[in-house]
Design a protein around this nucleic acid. Structure first.
Lengths: 147, 147
DNA sequence: TATTGTTATACTCTATAACTATA
DNA sequence: TATAGTTATAGAGTATAACAATA
């Protein structure tokens, strides 16, 4: 294939550069993240439960910025695959707590390792200054996503 | 809702922080980017054509990192909506060039302005040092996505 | 034969609307 | 009434497999 103008980063405003870079690296990471069985969203949810433990449906949906109805279907798939168990909160019968099974923890751990292999290799090739900029950007982007 | 551990940025390794921040800001930007008519992927393709002009199917699919079959359906929607025209390359009958219609250019321009409103407001609240880190990160992430 | 693109089919992800159950 | 969650349904986005057209 020919070289295209599309393969160069636009040099005008910061907002444009950021959105395009974020979309581009996200698509790249998505390919590393997903396994055969689990898509991007389900893997993200399983990773959250693996890391933080029992979480309600509403909390999951707010964290992932999707509707509760959408999240309900995503966790249903995880339950169906045997990676997550659904339990009613003893303290509030309306709430449901989702928790990974041992299988779920294993899959989440494996996926995290696999997903990080590519990124860590990329980071190792960067200068300390570049890594510092990425660390700072990670913090700032996280805060911006809150707002 | 309660405060959750999920609302704090993990402080261990850079790779983990980056992937989580990128996924989080991507989901946030996606909500700003999509209009009623066009989803994330279609808007991204239209934006590419708006910016760079006539492009082949294969070039589009490689740039967006999806299969040619998937891209064929995405551009089909854009053609159906009257935002893109499909023309056979006179120099190579196998190739198809996609080009925005005037309507397509208008929609792409409007969407870009709308999408940037939120981000530019966020950026304006940051320090010059933070913006510099974001600019550097945008460059580095773009290069990493290539590899 | 190789390259370019399309169609058929299926799955994931998401949304809105309507619903049940608990507080 | 308000909150938490589910189900039904529809549409976007993606993938693989099978195919047609052109080089």
């Amino acid at each position: 294939m020919d070289a295209h103008a599309s393969d160069t980063l636009p040099s005008d405003d910061l907002g444009e550069r950021l959105t395009r870079s974020i979309a581009r690296i996200y698509r790249r990471l998505r390919a590393e993240r997903t396994s055969g069985e689990l898509g991007d969203a389900a893997m993200s949810v399983l990773g959250h439960l693996h890391r933080y433990g029992p979480t309600t449906l509403t909390a999951l949906s707010e964290h992932e910025r999707v509707t509760a109805a959408s999240m309900s279907q995503t966790v249903n798939r995880l339950v169906g695959l045997g990676y997550v168990v659904r339990e009613t909160d003893p303290a509030d019968g309306r709430r449901v707590l989702f928790t990974p099974t041992p299988d779920g923890h294993r899959v989440a751990g494996d996926a995290r390792a696999r997903r990080h292999a590519w990124l860590d290799a990329q980071l190792a090739e960067r200068t300390p200054e570049e890594r510092a900029a990425l660390a700072e950007a990670a913090r700032v982007l996280w805060e911006m996503a809150e707002g």
